[in-house]
Simulated assay, not measured.
Amino acid sequence: MNAGKLRHRATIQQLVSTDDGAGGSIETWQDIVTVWAAIEPLRGNERYTAQQVQSTLSHKVTIRYREGIKPQMRLTYKGRVFEVESVIDVEERHQWLELLCSEVVQ
């Protein structure tokens, strides 16, 4: 990977549960870090769910290596949301992470 391809500013978020003061909890997405990323579409498909067509796009997002990135996280970029499906440490060298993500388009 060439660092020059990291031209998108994406924010990595994590789902956080907080006490709502009434005995329950509220789940919200919290920003963890903003990184430079390369976002590449891989494929798309459509499915019929609840009487509407829902499109899902798959993307490969490459970022510099960073500890703690997990599949339960998501990325946001210009109002788009990418759910992290898997995290790959490229060649196990701790230089680059490839995040395989899905973006649901409604």
Rank of each mutant, 00 (worst) to 15 (best):
V33K: 11
Q14I: 14
T56N: 05
K5Q: 14
R80N: 05
R93N: 07
D31T: 11
T11G: 02
G4Y: 15
F82H: 02
V90C: 04
Q106C: 03
T34E: 12
M1F: 13
T76G: 13
I26Q: 15
E83W: 08
R66F: 09
Q72M: 07
D89I: 05
V105S: 06
R9L: 14
I88L: 11
L99G: 03
R80T: 00
Q14P: 05
H8I: 05
I63T: 10
W96A: 02
A38V: 01
S102D: 09
S102R: 11
L57G: 15
Y65E: 08
W36L: 14
R93L: 14
A50N: 15
E103F: 00
T11H: 06
V61S: 03
E85H: 03
T18Y: 10
F82E: 02
K60A: 03
I39A: 00
R43G: 02
Q14K: 15
R43P: 03
Q54R: 15
L42G: 01
G24K: 11
A50P: 04
R9S: 14
S58M: 00
W36D: 14
E83S: 13
R64S: 09
V16Q: 10
Q13V: 07
E67A: 12
I12A: 06
I69N: 06
E91W: 10
Q54Y: 08
G44H: 00
R47M: 11
V104E: 10
E83C: 06
I39L: 05
L99I: 09
L100C: 05
A22K: 02
K78L: 14
V33M: 05
S86N: 04
E40R: 09
L6C: 01
G4E: 14
H8A: 15
P41N: 07
G79T: 10
R66H: 13
I32A: 12
L75W: 01
Q72H: 12
V84P: 00
Q30H: 04
R64N: 13
I32W: 06
L75V: 06
N45M: 02
S17M: 11
R93K: 15
D89C: 07
P71M: 03
N45P: 04
E40K: 08
T62D: 09
V16M: 08
E40L: 08
Q52M: 13
H94C: 08
T11A: 10
S25L: 02
V104K: 13
H59Y: 15
P41S: 13
A50E: 14
T28K: 12
C101Y: 01
D19R: 01
Q95S: 12
L6G: 01
K70F: 10
Y77P: 05
V81H: 03
E92K: 12
G24P: 02
